[in-house]
Design a protein around this nucleic acid. Structure first.
Lengths: 221, 221
DNA sequence: CAAGAATGTGAGACTCAGTATCATTCGAGT
DNA sequence: ACTCGAATGATACTGAGTCTCACATTCTTG
């Protein structure tokens, strides 16, 4: 759902490699998202028009809307391409013996290792995502895609998984929620705090960690 | 954040009852949301203009945007006022001995009792919330308010709650996620299934129900 | 390689969402 | 009653998002 659907009535057989048309399409998609994110980061969202983004991406205005439903969505996509989507990829490299939740925590820990290098860029993007109601709304919309990606990435770690099992999707949502709330708190603190640690704290705060049980703070970075 | 903030520099002392001005304001807010939801339900979202909503609510066009940031937000608010916000209210009436998660499950069970009466209306609203990317984005945006409301409603059920404890917010998000995903599945099934039961299933699928541990099905409907 | 079908593209026109301004009206407190 | 701050509505304006159509590009089939 990240790429706006093509009108392809001309179905491609599943096994074949993507043709020139599809490669061009995803390349254009990426150029637009990158241009949108860069312009919005530089000049602000309101000051960036779709015309500018389209020109910067080397396409026409009408074409822009064939790729993204809204300006905010293009920006949010460009911001996040460098961000949370990689989590699904990292998840694949985490030891298979780890359970779903532990795998997520390990993946975040891995990502947190070179967090400091990206801190300023990350803060800028996190602030931009929250800078207006419309921007936040479309960011939340994108999170759904990430939830699905994470759900697919962890699904194999569930044993006795029945079709339609709610657990992978719920874990995907839980993961994104932890990231979102941790980011909220981090941004509210002007990006001074330790975001990876915050994420781990939120991840640990599962709904079944009943108050009577100690809910050990889990202070690992 | 449901009501768009007033510019009130003339602070009202916290104890006093709301004056005519504030009562009028929330009444107008509600009239707009209701008119927006009704028109959108009747004619569709794209076919409903802000002008129509404003006229139906008996206000001017410019005033509309002093109450809502976007058309979709007004519609989503109108749709949800009849829906999930009541959950926070029901939560207060649930026996105090229940823990946070059990309280949520009990509250949903209570709401599910007269679900059948509202099934058609509920389905219509759920479909409308998912009818377009923009509508879904703004619906997700509203869910954040509900998360906060639920978090506040369950906070007292956590023992040893430190300020800034992530658990209430995470539970609020968990609750809304369960409702959202259950609704997705329910809508995909054209509203034929048992929504309350679905919600309970999703609620039970907590991230710590590790696959190695039996993950007791918790089959109470 | 040729030709036709399917699809992607850009230009321009159009509707309407969302913002800003300003004169007017309304509510709260004296 | 009087005054100040806030809410309102009319108006005008920018720009998002949609639509259509002519044209270009890619895919397919022979």
């Amino acid at each position: 759902m990240v790429v706006k659907g093509t009108t392809s009535r001309q179905a491609r057989r599943p096994g074949a490699e993507p043709g020139l048309r599809e490669r061009k399409r995803s390349a254009t998609q990426q150029r637009i998202a990158e241009a949108a994110a860069r312009l919005a980061t530089d000049q602000g969202i309101a000051e960036t028009t779709v015309d500018e983004i389209a020109t910067a991406a080397g396409i026409g205005r009408a074409t822009f809307f064939r790729y993204f439903d809204s300006k905010e969505l293009a920006i949010a996509t460009g911001l996040s391409d460098a961000g949370a989507y990689v989590l699904a990829g990292v998840l694949a490299d985490v030891p298979a013996r780890l359970g779903p939740l532990d795998a997520v925590r390990a993946a975040y820990a891995r990502l947190g290792e070179d967090f400091e290098a990206y801190r300023p860029m990350f803060l800028e993007q996190a602030q931009l995502s929250r800078s207006s109601p419309a921007m936040l709304a479309w960011t939340l919309y994108l999170y759904v895609d990430w939830e699905v990606a994470i759900a697919e990435a962890v699904a194999s770690r569930f044993t006795d998984l029945r079709p339609g099992d709610p657990r992978p999707r719920m874990l995907g949502a839980h993961t994104m929620t932890a990231a979102r709330l941790a980011c909220d708190e981090w941004v509210a603190d002007a990006g001074r705090g330790d975001l990876p640690a915050l994420i781990q704290q939120y991840l640990a705060a599962s709904p079944t960690s009943t108050p009577t049980s100690p809910t050990s703070p889990q202070g690992e970075s």
